[in-house]
Design a protein around this nucleic acid. Structure first.
Length: 630
DNA sequence: AAAAAAT
């Protein structure tokens, strides 16, 4: 039943596409021309001293447009791949083994040019099957170059020092996921897949690879570089025929630049060994196309966008809401209120999928703190689903366990850092909830892309404090975000409310038991995270209120003078550590309800209160005033 | 003391 609606949906989008083929090919060819133009050295841009520049010079022949890719090549069903010469074992694996029938737009538009050996830069919405779109042509071309790979037995001849294709991913879990998909696809062929990521036993991987060999390696950059730079591993790719960058914009940004370049130094030069490069993502910023031109062959590539330039790269079927909260101290109770409300909806309506949510937080410590609070809540609340967490401070074994458990769970909440923001395909996620602002618009888009996948429904919520709202407006332009005002904890004065709702009591009772170290790390990490376009002084106020009213500290956590100086000497309300420093006392314990803010007159908070009183109409006052959001 | 990514 799920499958038919998926197919219907896919068919509908294809029809929509068919009515604008001229437009599509115009866009593609103008993009090609734009690339060709920009491949002249631009005086405005600093010249990167990268070895990548050697790859394709500006003197290359005139670019082809993509208009020669006429309708004769148009494939819309996986069965049609037989016509393009894809080996029957691979087609059978797709159609009979995995049950795929109709292609999505990206698959339909990129598989044939990629099969023809073209480089491809592709942008398509989240959850539309980009992984399959690059795996099919890469694997088919492996088989075409070594026909004996079409049958299972040929695997015995695979070598670990003759890898033919490499897929790079920005996170370990995504690499594992791609590896699993590739292995399913290659069942019934002789193509051997290996996965190489950090946090796993390198020697075990090497032993396995030496025995089984490897045609296609799926890896994260760090481990791949480690393997290639150490000759004794026996891992090499002197005949590399394909390089895929999944989440290409991420892989090409500064965070990965150095590592990627030194990986390329261990791979054959494309002038000596012709190589196909495939770059796929849901978001391709313009500057990435600029960087990408060093990777792709300007005379033989296709730029495929299944998202129109003026279109939002999110799904219409995923409604997006922003919940402006009075202060940071309102965020945890508002999250709990939202979770309970949505949980109740799914319990009352058997037509709805069970509540399965990912909650994104900006730092690893905050993920840890929230997950611990909600685990404690679950102890007293039998409606609360299972709680998982995933972030880079966990061991890889724990990360994998969380990801697998959440993938298999019917109803659950996964608290996550941005490890899971891109590419992860957890089935039937009904809600994506972001707490605090994401660093940028693309990250917001990737995060909400964890729901509404493969034609399914989903909802997206963004919980922010009022002080973050102006930044939210400028960071998230052009998105169909509606304001959600019907959560009562969002606007409540947590400090002074006369009769505090049960939700806030529940949160406080769970939060007060969180170890001080975790509170302190969360506080410091959110301070460190609060850069850019949110006023630092506002953030200090907000965090101080949060540790006071939610975690019950009688003074803000102490920071090193070094950190405080680095953050800004003029910022008020930060407490520095002294020789005789002791852990702040908890203002309230297990009692619940007795805390009303009195007696909290220690240094950090005292300053705040004075400031708040003196600065009438200061930034604090403005931020607290009700203002229209979105 | 701020996602991620090698040990």
């Amino acid at each position: 039943m799920m499958k038919t609606s998926l197919l219907r949906q896919a068919a509908a989008t294809r029809v929509a596409l068919a009515v604008r083929p001229a437009q599509a090919s115009f866009r593609a060819s103008s993009a090609v021309l734009a690339l060709a133009r920009s491949s002249r050295p631009s005086p405005a841009l600093p010249r990167p001293a990268s070895s990548l520049l050697r790859f394709y010079s500006a003197e290359s022949a005139a670019p082809q447009t993509s208009s020669d890719n006429g309708s004769s090549n148009l494939v819309t069903r996986f069965e049609d791949l037989r016509r393009l010469g894809v080996h029957e074992h691979l087609v059978n694996s797709l159609t009979k083994g995995l049950g795929y029938e109709t292609m999505t737009d990206v698959q339909s538009m990129t598989i044939s040019p990629a099969l023809a050996g073209k480089d491809v830069v592709a942008q398509a919405k989240t959850g539309t099957g980009k992984t399959l779109a690059f795996l099919v042509p890469v694997i088919q071309r492996l088989i075409a170059s070594q026909p004996e790979l079409a049958s299972p037995r040929a695997g015995g001849r695979a070598r670990s020092d003759d890898i033919r294709a490499i897929v790079l991913s920005p996170t370990r879990e995504l690499a594992e996921q791609i590896g699993v998909e590739a292995k399913k696809l290659c069942r019934g062929t002789g193509v051997v897949i290996q996965t190489a990521v950090g946090g796993t036993q390198k020697n075990a991987m090497l032993r396995k690879t030496r025995i089984e060999g490897c045609h296609l390696l799926v890896a994260t950059p760090g481990r791949l570089h480690d393997l290639l730079s150490d000759r004794s591993t026996g891992i090499d790719a002197p005949n590399l025929a394909a390089l895929v960058l999944d989440e290409a914009d991420r892989m090409l940004d500064v965070g990965f630049k150095a590592e990627l370049e030194s990986i390329l130094d261990y791979l054959p030069h494309p002038v000596d060994v012709p190589r196909q490069t495939l770059l796929y993502s849901a978001t391709i910023p313009k500057n990435v196309v600029n960087i990408a031109r060093k990777f792709i062959n300007p005379t033989n590539f296709e730029f495929v966008q299944t998202v129109r330039a003026d279109e939002v790269p999110t799904h219409e079927r995923v409604p997006q809401f922003i919940v402006p909260c009075r202060g940071f101290e309102n965020l945890p109770p508002t999250l709990l209120e939202l979770v309970r409300r949505e949980l109740r909806k799914t319990l009352d309506d058997s037509d709805k999928l069970p509540f399965k949510a990912i909650v994104f937080l900006p730092t690893t410590s905050s993920v840890q703190a929230y997950a611990t609070i909600f685990r404690r809540l679950k102890f007293h609340d039998r409606l609360m689903p299972r709680i998982f967490d995933i972030h880079s401070k966990l061991s890889q074994a724990a990360r994998t366990r969380s990801a697998d458990n959440f993938r298999q769970a019917k109803s659950a909440i996964l608290f996550s850092s941005d490890v899971s923001a891109r590419g992860m395909d957890f089935p039937n996620v009904t809600h994506v909830i972001q707490v605090h602002l994401p660093q940028d618009r693309d990250l917001y888009i990737h995060r909400i892309g964890r729901t509404g996948r493969a034609g399914k429904q989903g909802e997206a919520y963004l919980l922010t404090a009022d002080v973050e709202i102006p930044a939210a407006r400028s960071r998230l332009p052009g998105l169909p975000i509606k304001r959600c005002t019907d959560l009562e904890c969002a606007s409540m004065d947590v400090a002074r409310a006369a009769d505090v709702p049960q939700v806030i009591e529940d949160i406080k009772n769970a939060a007060v038991k969180i170890p001080y170290e975790v509170v302190k790390d969360t506080y410091a990490s959110l301070l460190g995270n609060a850069i850019k376009d949110v006023d630092k002084q506002d953030v200090v106020y907000e965090l101080n209120n949060m540790v006071k009213y939610i975690f019950g500290l009688d003074q803000p956590p102490a920071l090193s003078t070094k950190f405080v100086n680095h953050f800004g000497r003029h910022i008020k309300g930060l407490r520095t550590v002294t020789a005789r420093d002791i852990e702040p006392r908890r203002e309230y314990g297990n009692r619940g309800g007795s805390y009303s803010g009195h007696g909290a007159r220690s240094e950090g908070f005292e300053k705040l209160e004075r400031l708040a009183a003196n600065e009438n109409g200061g930034s604090r006052g403005r931020a607290r005033a009700p203002r229209p959001a979105f």
